[in-house]
Amino acid sequence: MNTVLHKADTRGDANHGWLQSKHSFSFANYHNPERMNFGVLRVLNDDVVAAGRGFGTHAHQNMEIISIPMEGDLEHKDSMGNVAVIKSGDIQVLSAGKGMTHSEYNRNLEKEVEFLQIWVLPKVKNVAPRYDQIALNVQDRNNQLQQVLSPSPEDDGVWVHQDAWFTMTNLSEGKELTYQLNHPEKNGVYVFVLKGNATINKQPLNKRDGFGVWDVTELDIKADSDAELLLMEVPMNE
């Protein structure tokens, strides 16, 4: 078993006034050569957008971009003509492919928006850009594993152009689960603790800690308090 531990307080910190962001991996002005990625997981940003503010129109290319709102609503507009609002309980994926533009905006003038922005390198390039968004049944992750992303449009959750699986779970204190890797021969899992405390393969973790594990077939998960986790299984080689 190989592991990497990223404690919450070691993440990159960017405060733009309207945007406060914590970077688990190198991003924008935060550059750490030892924290460039976890396999094809390239970006994990923990973002807070101020009331009435947002990201203006900007371009992306050849990246799978996943947004998971934690609190509040975020409006999305893109060059494909999509206009949508994502909120807590939703998951959004944008396959940038051969190129597209979009904007994200907090229309609420009183409340911040908190969301995770995740970038995964695709296994194929220059595909037609694609947008998808679904509302998840959050109850389906209570003390069990809920798949929210996969490589297949026939599977649960949204899908991406990569052999990746994302899973979420809300655990009661003392609950234990086992996560079986879909492709243990080539994939690893990066666990991000959204709330609470948990132990993964004997490693204690706290809120917003990140823990990468590879060369294993499964993860043993125990909630040391009520806890919420995001598990991102991704290929370790680009």
Rank of each mutant, 00 (worst) to 15 (best):
M1V: 13
L5M: 11
K7N: 01
A8T: 00
A8H: 02
D9Y: 07
T10C: 01
G12P: 02
Q20C: 06
H23T: 01
F25R: 02
H31F: 14
N32P: 00
P33N: 04
P33A: 06
E34G: 07
M36L: 12
M36A: 10
M36C: 06
F38T: 10
V40M: 15
L41I: 04
R42C: 05
V43M: 05
N45S: 04
D47L: 13
V48H: 02
V49P: 08
A50E: 10
A51T: 13
R53G: 10
G56I: 03
T57A: 15
H58Y: 09
Q61R: 15
I65R: 02
S67C: 09
H76R: 03
H76Q: 07
K77V: 07
K77P: 00
K77I: 07
I86D: 01
I86R: 02
K87I: 00
S88W: 01
I91T: 02
Q92C: 11
V93Q: 14
S95Q: 10
M100V: 11
M100A: 12
H102I: 04
S103E: 13
N108P: 06
L109Q: 13
E110P: 04
K111T: 12
V113Y: 01
W119K: 04
V120Q: 04
V120R: 03
K123I: 07
V127G: 14
V127N: 07
R130S: 09
Y131F: 15
Q133H: 14
N137L: 13
R141P: 09
N142A: 14
Q146V: 05
S150C: 00
S150W: 04
P153I: 07
D156P: 08
V158I: 14
V160M: 11
V160Y: 07
W165C: 09
T167K: 05
T169N: 04
G174K: 07
L177N: 03
T178L: 12
Q180H: 12
L181C: 08
N182E: 15
P184V: 10
E185C: 05
K186G: 13
G188A: 11
G188D: 07
V193T: 10
V193Y: 04
N197W: 07
I200V: 15
N201D: 10
Q203S: 01
P204S: 00
K207F: 03
D209K: 00
G210L: 00
W214D: 08
D215K: 14
T217Y: 12
I221H: 00
A223V: 02
D226Q: 00
L229Q: 05
E233P: 02
M236V: 01
